[in-house]
Amino acid sequence: MPHDVIAEMTDGIRAVMGATSVTQLRRLSGGASRETWRFMADETDFVLQRVRQGTPLGLGAEPSVLKAAFAAGVPVPELVIDGSQSDVLERPFMIVRAVGGETIARKILRDDEFSTARTNLVGQLGRAAAQLHRIDTASVPGLTVEDQIHRYRVAMDTVGEPHPVFEAAFRWLEQNKPTSTGTSVVHGDFRLGNVMVNGNGLAAILDWELAHLGDPMEDLGWLCVRAWRFGGAHPAAGLGSYEQLFDAYEAESGIRPDFDVVRWWEILGTLKWGIICISQANTHLSGLVRSHELAAIGRRVCENEYDLIEMLLEGVA
């Protein structure tokens, strides 16, 4: 990173924050569409997220969702600057107060320093999900209802490879659609990896990029998809039972999640992750981004076929 880029950004940040000093600006790894930076302003740690160069979409509704979630008492980083309409840093950005902890699932599931966190986490995730599902949808005007089945049908057809097990899962999901639990703000990627965890457990829910309106049970089902257990033995985030998760959700919301509905979303989630694996491998195969890491993800598609067969044959003699 050339020094003048850092210096220019530091100046820009100092201006938007009205800070006396901005120091230690450094880039962290980020997602596919965002750059993540960290810095100190007047002795306090902040995180900056900026839209990646060449990404046509801005930050979408994320800043307003974060603000609404914070106001509703959901554990999220506090939004300090919404730069979604600003050109001070060239591309849309937002700045949040940094939250300390760890996001890497394998560490959270295995390292000694998180043993207390592991005991608390499933209950905390259940309560936090209930809190985020209580956010007034009218307070986040940018969010839209998204038909998840349609979205991933299109994603699979875009690549065009035949996957009989996924076709069977699509049929089953269509035939067994549960009655809607309601329409809430849905986080859209609620799982380990996207939550900040400290020694006591959940510190903040991060990565609201995929937030949309939909059935709140989508978040609970996604949390239980086997890929998001990261090798853990239990269904909820690899750490706890459905019962533990549902108890916490009910304690916070008064609503007892229906296992069959959550399971339907878990099955859709497994299909979704399988299709995302196909798409990622295709990013390499099509030549868009040549990468053996993306290529290898193509061989994880079958893990999801395996899980779908197991779930769809459950209870069948």
Binding site: P164, A168, I309, V316
Partner: peptide, 12 residues
């Protein structure tokens, strides 16, 4: 559907 899934199990 379950018969098809049962048949595909060894392949997967």
């Amino acid at each position: 559907l379950t018969d098809v899934l049962q048949a595909l199990k060894p392949v997967v």
